[in-house]
């Protein structure tokens, strides 16, 4: 599919026809309805989409972090290993070792009753079985790596004693404790102020390059994707509707939903112009969509759009879209 498969290197992440359904007594949500994704080592993929499109669920599936009652189908391979088949003890090594995750709210990942230094050292000791002194030294290195000022002093700080931006950095330090090959980031800068968001984004970009990590970064913000992504997958109603290099997507999206999203994103130079909007709202997902899920809102909808789920076609090398109007390239 994407560049990763064309080279011989095995992809770091290989997601095939992922389906995730949540069934409770009250309701059923078909959150993810057939997602294929590839990520090469050292590559940054942004999953872009509005709330409820299945971004976080897709990300959590990669670490088997979904609740027990979630029905998961499809192939989930990370670093050549089948995540679904992992035992609990294998998962414990895998999470925080090969793969780590960061969140919008740092307290999701930090333990309030331990100092930042202890939490990092603990992670290192658990995964690598090194001595306490080695782990402590590594904790200091990591706080310096994420550019926390007065790192030595901050080792002894509890999470609540740090400002928002520093707490975000501390969470990143914990995630990087064992040099993961894959970092999963779920909107880690969404709640931050503009001047802090750009600091954290640039830090993540720098660390990704320095450590040559693969990163899957979930965001609803096209501007954030533009700063950090190599390629972008746009999700709608639990499917990828467009995928390709970030520059092409930002310069000219192919899928009508992606076009609508770009037109609706306020950016400089739009003053005085009427904003493009997408009428209506996304589907409920109580049943899995059997047509183009965007068709009720799409101004180009035609009979072919509701005949079935449009296939993801390669419109030009490396660029894919799931829309009957986008022809297969040569």
């Amino acid at each position: 599919m994407s560049a990763a498969l064309k080279t011989n290197a095995p992809p770091l992440v290989k997601l095939r026809d992922l389906h995730v359904t949540f069934k409770t007594r009250d309701r059923t949500v078909h959150a993810v309805n057939g997602v294929d994704l590839d990520l090469a080592a050292g590559e940054v993929l942004c999953i872009l989409g509005e709330s409820g499109s299945g971004k976080s669920v897709t990300l959590r599936a990669l670490m088997k972090l979904l609740p027990k009652f979630a029905q998961i189908k499809g192939g989930i391979e990370v670093n050549g290993r089948d995540v679904n088949a992992m035992s609990n003890s294998q998962l414990a090594d895998f999470r925080g070792g090969e793969v780590a995750m960061i969140f919008q709210e740092p307290m999701t990942a930090l333990d309030p009753v331990f100092t930042v230094g202890r939490q990092i050292a603990e992670t290192v000791q658990r995964h690598e079985g090194v001595s306490r002194a080695t782990a402590d030294a590594r904790a200091l290195e990591l706080l310096e790596l994420v550019q926390i000022p007065s790192a030595k002093r901050r080792l002894a700080a509890y999470p609540h004693e740090l400002s928002g931006g520093l707490r975000q950095r501390a969470m990143i330090a914990v995630a990087l404790a064992c040099r993961p090959k894959l970092l999963l980031a779920d909107e880690p800068t969404t709640a931050l102020d503009a001047t802090v968001q750009i600091q954290v984004l640039l830090l993540l970009r720098e660390l990704q390059e320095k450590l040559d990590m693969g990163v899957i970064f979930v965001t609803h913000d096209l501007g954030v994707a533009g700063e950090i992504a190599d390629k972008v997958a746009v999700m709608y109603a639990g499917r990828v509707v467009e995928e390709g290099p970030v520059s092409g997507l930002m310069a000219g999206p192919l899928h009508p939903y992606a076009q609508g999203l770009l037109g609706a994103t306020v950016h400089p130079g739009m003053r005085g112009k009427r904003l493009t909007t997408i009428p209506g709202a996304p589907p409920m997902l109580d049943v899995a969509p059997t047509t183009c899920a965007f068709s009720p809102r799409c101004e180009y909808a035609e009979a072919a759009c509701t005949a079935g789920v449009p296939a993801l076609v390669e419109a030009s090398p490396g660029r894919f879209a799931r829309c009957v109007r986008v022809p297969k390239g040569v």
Binding site: P149, S163, G164, G165, L166, D193, A194, T195, V196, Q197, I198, Q199, L201, L202, D221, L222, G223, V224, G226, E227, A229, V246, S247, M250, H267, P268
Partner: peptide, 23 residues
């Protein structure tokens, strides 16, 4: 503040944060 906005152009990415630290 203005320089903290994402550039909206992957060819002209921000290279340096305009400010350090939190308010």
């Amino acid at each position: 503040l203005l320089d903290s906005r994402p550039s909206m152009d992957p060819a002209k990415r921000r290279t340096k944060p305009p400010l350090t630290g939190d308010p």
